[in-house]
């Protein structure tokens, strides 16, 4: 403890000295830039070591055919193998289904809840807290509870189905597609996301809804009330106000949520791991890119190949973020 106090005290003195020294020079333009850069330097250094270094390391790792630490330079061989692997494309498909299922649903539901909360006059704080509770619950612990609810033997979900006279389901063990299950087999079993994947999506929507609601509430609160009032005076109904006033002014918030949701959707791991234990029992229908990467890196010891998947994942995230940013210019209104 005393070491930490001493360190903090020392750091404080250094920063105070730097501050005083740099403020004296900040009258000149060059001095101001130097001051700013000196203050940025620690952050840049940390970013370099803990942000850039792992990325560089991963990219370099991906160029070697490393198995359990040994292997020769393979160039782009790992990337070639990934792009030719059906298991890789399956994980891409699972990730895509997950993104399509989770991100718009969470934002849509979040908007409905947030809009409702904005117009609730009593108990708003209580409702906000209730919606936010799942988000602050440990994802792993919550997933274990969901596993119990979705247990095919004795779980609450099947109990409810039995009670209303519907056939019970295998839930997290079901590799067949949701459409196949719902239509009683009319649609092929491998069409669309599996029922197990839909369960994972439902969990993540439930878990992430609170965060979305809070962000949207902040966005809604920033919209001047006079604009909605003016629209109403002009004869606009509730839906028209939402469509022509609220949503356009909320687009920066929606864009933020879309971006964050997409990135975290690509990186989803906890729910997949906790609910389906890596997806083996669902025949890969719950094996997203991160689980696939994890299995190759840690279970199969294929470090180079795992690093190549991680790099492809990074490229995919950056590409999608750039595409979103480009299209955002058309529909995001900052004023």
């Amino acid at each position: 403890m005393s070491l930490w106090v001493g360190f903090s005290d020392g750091l404080d003195r250094v920063l105070a000295w730097a501050d005083g020294h740099l403020v004296g020079r900040s009258g000149r333009p060059e001095g101001g830039r130097r001051a700013a850069l000196c203050l940025l330097a620690p952050a840049l250094l940390l970013l370099g070591v803990f942000g850039v270094a792992p990325i560089v390391s991963t990219v370099l790792l991906s160029l070697f055919d490393l198995r359990y630490g040994n292997g020769a330079f393979a160039g782009l061989g790992n990337y070639q193998e990934a792009l030719q692997s059906s298991a890789f494309w399956n994980s891409v498909r699972v990730t895509a289904w997950y993104l399509v299922g989770v991100v718009p649903t969470t934002i849509g539901l979040g908007f409905v809840v947030a809009w409702g909360l904005m117009h609730v006059t009593q108990g708003r704080t209580l409702f906000r807290t209730l919606y936010f509770l799942p988000y602050i619950t440990s994802a792993y612990a919550a997933a274990l509870v969901w596993r119990a609810l979705l247990n095919p033997q004795g779980g609450l979900a099947n109990g409810l189905l039995e009670w209303i006279g519907l056939p019970t389901q295998q839930w997290l063990l079901e590799p067949r597609g949701l459409l196949h299950v719902v239509t009683g087999g009319a649609v092929a079993a491998d069409v669309g996301p599996s029922l197990a994947l839909c369960c994972v999506m439902a969990f993540d929507i439930w878990h992430g809804l609170g965060f979305t609601v809070v962000i949207l509430l902040a966005g809604l609160s920033a919209i001047p009330q006079e604009l909605e009032d003016a629209a109403r005076i002009d004869g606009a109904g509730v839906l028209q106000v939402i469509r022509h006033v609220t949503l356009p002014l909320l687009t920066p918030t929606l864009y933020f949520l879309l971006l964050i949701g997409t990135i975290s959707g690509f990186q989803a791991f906890n729910s997949f791991y906790a609910l389906t234990q890596s997806g083996g029992n669902t025949l890969g229908t719950t094996e997203n890119l991160v689980i696939y990467l994890f299995a190759n890196f840690y279970d199969n010891g294929r470090w180079g190949y795992g690093a190549a998947i991680a790099t492809l994942l990074l490229v995919a995230i950056i590409a999608l973020a750039l595409v979103q940013a480009r299209f955002a210019r058309r529909w995001v209104h900052y004023s």
Partner: peptide, 26 residues
Amino acid sequence: MLTRSFIGLSLLGGLIAGCNPTPSSS
């Protein structure tokens, strides 16, 4: 110019820290 130097330095630091991805078996 200075900005570039700093960013370059941080990238260089990252590169140095991130190199040697292949653990030796010996």
